[in-house]
């Protein structure tokens, strides 16, 4: 900016490089650990350079799993996580778009009341009402199903607020023009509002996909059938299952596989991700 400060900017780079190193290091260690043979971990401290068993380890966790590690293969778990994350992201966006549309483009009785009902969900994270929510899902017969994994997490005040905020900025003339041309509400919604919202929808999708993929407590409660385990909760079973030391090379291969999809989403859609994150908190 104003002054030229060689030493200062050198120091800044140094701090940032150290910071980045500290942020990356835990994942680096995990990747390295996932490439070693099981015996490596019996000889004390783990090495910091890659080993030669990468392909073997990853093949084991993805397709076999069970045999030594005491866990099902994670191929299926990855698929379950993907289905759950997609259902949550798509479901949240769909119902939020509809309710934001109703709240902004209609005047009707109890409008404010419904707005507050939706707002309440902000104050009730799953973690604070786990036992009764579990009871509801059990009574509906949704344990061990994709519906049970995703539907209870679909209601979202943040997405509704974001779309409400955005709809308020759409010029009035759009609606007037549409009405002059004789378009009904659903046609206006489908042909004008949706195409205009596409960036917001994409940004929301990135955030909600990550939210869905990273769910932990909820899948832990509503699944006890291995066919519905998600990968993030599956790791815990590998770490604590059994009395002996965990099989670190396989645990870390699973960790890498579980963390990779959402990280890739962020890296490839960084712009949308930042937009989604910053806008939802307005």
């Amino acid at each position: 900016m104003v002054e030229n400060d060689r030493f200062g900017s050198l120091l800044a780079h140094l701090i940032l490089i150290l910071g980045v190193a500290a942020v990356v290091f835990p994942v680096y260690v995990a990747v390295i650990a996932s490439t070693h043979a099981p015996g490596t971990f019996l000889q004390g401290v783990m090495p910091l350079l890659p080993g030669s068993h990468a392909i073997e380890n990853y093949r084991t966790v993805i397709f076999e799993g069970r045999a030594q590690a005491g866990a099902p293969p994670i191929g299926l778990m990855l698929w379950n996580s993907f289905v759950m994350a997609m259902m949550i992201a798509v479901g949240k966006i769909a119902i939020s778009l509809l309710s934001a549309f109703a709240i902004v483009y209609f005047r009707f009785r109890f409008r404010i009341f419904f707005f507050w009902v939706i707002f309440l969900t902000l104050m009730l994270p799953v973690e604070v009402r786990i036992v009764p929510t579990y009871a509801v899902v059990a009574n509906l017969g949704l344990l061990n199903s994709y519906a049970g994994l995703s539907i209870p997490l679909i209601a979202s005040a943040t997405a509704t607020f974001l779309f409400r905020q955005f709809f308020m900025t759409v010029p009035e003339e759009m609606l007037e023009a549409a009405r002059v041309d004789g378009a009904g509400p659903m046609k206006f919604f489908k042909d004008i509002l949706l195409p205009l919202s596409i960036t917001n929808i994409a940004a929301m999708f990135v955030i909600m996909f990550i939210y869905g993929w990273n769910q932990y407590l909820w899948p832990l409660l509503v699944t006890n059938d291995e066919r519905y385990y998600t990968v993030v909760m599956g790791i815990q079973r590998m770490v604590t299952g059994g009395d002996s030391e965990p099989l670190w090379h396989l645990v870390m291969a699973t960790v890498v596989m579980a963390a990779l999809p959402p990280i890739l989403v962020i890296l490839f859609m960084q712009r949308l991700f930042v937009k989604g994150l910053v806008e939802t908190e307005k």
């Binding site: 940032l16 910071g19 980045v20 942020v23 990356v24 290091f25 835990p26 994942v27 260690v29 995990a30 650990a33 990550i210 993929w213 990273n214 769910q215 932990y216 993030v232 909760m233 790791i235 815990q236 770490v239 670190w248 645990v251 870390m252 960790v255 579980a258 963390a259 959402p262 990280i263 989403v265 962020i266 890296l267 960084q270 991700f273 930042v274 994150l277």
Partner: peptide
């Protein structure tokens, strides 16, 4: 730098726990 600093957002809390627990 931004790219290198933002991605841990994508790591689930449980996974973050296991990573540090391992170290």
């Amino acid at each position: 730098y931004t790219t290198f600093l933002v991605w841990p957002y994508a790591v689930a809390p449980a996974i973050a726990g296991v990573l540090w627990w391992f170290m």
